[in-house]
Design a binder for these strands. Structure first.
Lengths: 250, 250
DNA sequence: CGAGGTCTTGAAGACGATCAACAAACGTGG
DNA sequence: CCACGTTTGTTGATCGTCTTCAAGACCTCG
């Protein structure tokens, strides 16, 4: 992992812009401001906890490639994942305003990331109100995802919970070109899914088999295939409104 | 419920300022800007769903007195509460940037509220970067609370889950002078608590009895008494960091 | 005083956890 | 390219937490 400062590489730049433009159209000046952010690239192997609970980062991290997750550990060693991040996500944009970190972040696969200094982000909040609102909205969508997760964990049975997160991931991966309603690459194991859903590995395995048996999905070799999108949505009571996939005027 | 526009009444003004100043000290100009917000007061009886999923409000609602909750309904009639709000909270500040509402809000007790027009809030985001960051931070704390809720639901047993939310409510009520580590008025029933925790009413009842039997809390007549704060925190593995109760420089 | 809501209790059962063993897939080095 | 060890997925049996249903006690308020 190197730490030399530079501008966003084309790939990373494209990912952020894609993601933010899903919330609202950006002006040329805003795109330019994003392009001029000083960033420090980094990459981490699977399993590396590159942000730790209790730290107060001086930059926010943008995920360019791979999957990572926020999580908390309990005293008994149990892990709860509170969010799975896909390329284009700011994994800790909130660390700009909330200190210290109340959770850690781990690379679930090999990850490419860039750090954006809080100083630069703060300058954006001082000078570019609209872009600030877009970034704010990005954190609000995070919150909406968390709410749906709570609904799942509280009131949906295991199979529906699994179905729901698969629907969600498909739609979140779509705008960055990494998936669609027919499926997506998903190099995570059932153990990680279990930590995300708050279930045991064994139970995730059985729920997966159930969705498989009902011809809703396949899940093998690091890829999830969605055989029946509508059926999966029905199972999950999935309503994509909360992802704010349409453009708003922010 | 009346809708005439006015300035924030002293009580409401104090609540917002107290709440926001918990995040960062406000300047005189910022306090003044808040005082000049045009607001529409409203009050709702217990049980009224005053914001409904699917709507796109033109104002954000500040809770001045009483308790209310965000919730989602499932097809089978089950309700999951995704957040309990206490006086001083903006219950739907995110509706400024996210549309339409992906959940409803219900008054859990008689509530006094004021609506703040999105137009005014947006003006703040255009002209007062620091106050904007404070408001943003308020929504980020919301998110942190949601993450802890996920940890509770996923990995904490029922009793700890109940203990955790009680610890949290105590600390969230403290800065508005409505509670402390010895307890607080809490006019909600076990059924509502069940919907918040994702448990059944019966189970909440039994977990309450368990905490009672262990001399950690009392809960009667609309008030929760905390008999042993440290014990309750231990039971819950409660770490208040996520509430950002200390001042930050935003 | 009566009526409706809330709390409490018991019994039965479902969903999911845990433990343990085995199979399959994967990656690594020879 | 194969052999091996490790990780991940699969299965079965058993156990515990939490749910459901149902009934009765307690409160509160009109």
């Amino acid at each position: 992992m190197s730490t030399q400062l530079g501008r966003l590489q084309p790939e990373a730049f494209a990912r952020v812009v894609e993601r933010l433009e899903r919330l609202d159209r950006l002006g040329d000046d805003e795109r330019q401001a994003l392009g001029e952010l000083r960033v420090s690239p980094a990459s981490h192997a699977k399993g590396v906890e590159f942000i730790r609970q209790g730290e107060t980062p001086t930059e926010s991290t943008l995920l360019v490639e791979g999957f990572c997750a926020r999580f908390n550990l309990l005293h008994n060693g149990a892990r709860q994942i509170t969010g799975i991040h896909v390329p284009g996500d700011f994994v800790d944009l909130h660390s700009l305003l909330l200190r210290p970190m109340d959770h850690s972040v781990v690379a679930l696969t090999r990850c490419k990331l860039v750090g954006v200094s809080h100083e630069d982000l703060r300058r954006i909040t001082e000078t570019m109100p609209h872009l600030t609102r877009v970034l704010w909205a990005a954190t609000l969508v995070d919150g909406a995802v968390l709410r749906q997760q709570i609904v799942s964990m509280g009131r949906r049975p295991g199979a529906a919970q699994l179905a729901h997160i698969i629907c969600e991931l498909a739609l979140r991966l779509e705008p960055v070109g990494l998936g669609d309603r027919t499926g997506f690459d998903f190099p995570l194991g059932q153990a990680e899914m279990a930590d995300a859903l708050g279930l045991s590995t064994v139970h995730v395995n059985r729920m997966t088999q159930q969705l498989r048996a009902r011809r809703l999905i396949e899940w093998r070799r690091g890829a999830i295939v969605i055989l029946d999108w509508d059926g999966l949505c029905r199972e999950a009571e999935f309503d994509p409104t909360y992802l704010n996939l349409h453009h708003n005027r922010l």
